[in-house]
Nucleic acid binder design. Structure first.
Lengths: 191, 191
DNA sequence: AAAAAATTAGTACCTGGTACCAAGAATAGT
DNA sequence: ACTATTCTTGGTACCAGGTACTAATTTTTT
């Protein structure tokens, strides 16, 4: 029974690993991956109290449904002005999902994300990457406030850009950052 | 036909309103709410190109998954080790949602977010804020790779901490950052 | 009243399951 | 070597929440 038990256990561990990675797998998918029958998968799920696909999907949907922030576009915040190769501006309203639950203070990486994505947007290139950044947070930003980020290209050398971003809430500076950005040539990017 | 058309239109508007509010409603639920037959609901959905429940839930789930990384928890990535007041480690698998659509290179602010949130997590405080950061990206990270971030507190002075974070993919350093973090006293934070 | 539009009803079929029963294979204990 | 136990597989009936399609019925328009 040892060998069989071992197989069963390792299979069940694998099963949960696969499902953690991708909860959208059907029993049939799993059976195929783990080279056992669908029934075995079902027994395994039952053993491990793992609900069926539809329930899993529902759970993910309920858990993840909140405010959108970093998801959709390439840009965090709403672009209000863009002069490619020169400067740009974006507005990010701070929603509850972006704040530390205890304090309703916006988490730093959201402010960074707005600035960083704006810095990249002003670059005149199909794609660009941040190489380095030096940022400082001047004061906390609270839920409900709107962050206006302004980016200006300061230096351009070949495919290297230095972009300065200043973020304000009602004319008060909350964040400053210098971003070193590299423009990528359209091809040549490994997959 | 005017009255009927009107009824149909208003019903369809109501339908989409109800579904926006709660995408988990079945056709039967909707039929009950709107006092028409299930078939009518189906025709309406077909008219308005609204997919069936399971598809809707899936969409929400997929959307939710992307956001979860930035929106859901306070931490970006999965904490694998944490010694509060000393060091911590987290893993962030790079999903398609995090990458520049053209190149499948992870956008910088996700890598920053993982590091930043880890830096805050290692601080021994109810809440903490990033005051400044100096970061550099050593090489692009691609979709499918897993980023292992390691944070260590280097200096502590009162409520000020200097945290160094190094992120690697398969023992190769992809990102380095120094974060200046301030611990917040539990109260006294304005709403 | 006839034509057109909208609604409802009914059927066959699909996916991804549950719940249950029985047969077959593998392993353990003796 | 043989039996008992555990694992695995197969099969069936059933369910929710649909699709796709046809046909009948009601409502509205002309």
């Amino acid at each position: 029974m040892a060998k069989c038990s071992l197989n069963k256990n390792t299979r069940q561990r694998q099963l949960s690993r696969y499902l953690e990675e991708d909860p959208f797998l059907t029993d049939e998918d799993l059976a195929c991956i783990l080279k056992v029958s669908v029934q075995t998968i079902r027994l395994d799920r039952f053993d491990m109290q793992i609900p069926e696909l539809r329930e899993r999907v529902k759970n993910v949907a309920r858990g993840g449904r909140q405010l959108r922030t970093m998801a959709g576009g390439e840009l965090v915040g709403d672009l209000v002005d863009l002069e490619i190769g020169n400067s740009g501006m974006s507005i990010l309203p701070v929603t509850p999902a972006m704040t530390l639950s205890k304090t309703s203070v916006a988490r730093g990486h959201h402010i960074f994300a707005q600035a960083n994505s704006l810095a990249i947007a002003v670059i005149d290139a199909g794609a660009a990457l941040t190489g380095a950044a030096r940022v400082s947070y001047k004061r906390p930003v609270y839920c409900g406030e709107k962050i206006l980020a302004k980016a200006v290209i300061k230096i351009k050398k070949g495919n290297k850009y230095m972009v300065k971003v200043t973020s304000e809430v009602k004319d008060e500076i909350v964040f400053k950052g210098k971003f070193l950005v590299f423009a990528l040539q359209e091809e040549g990017v490994p997959q």
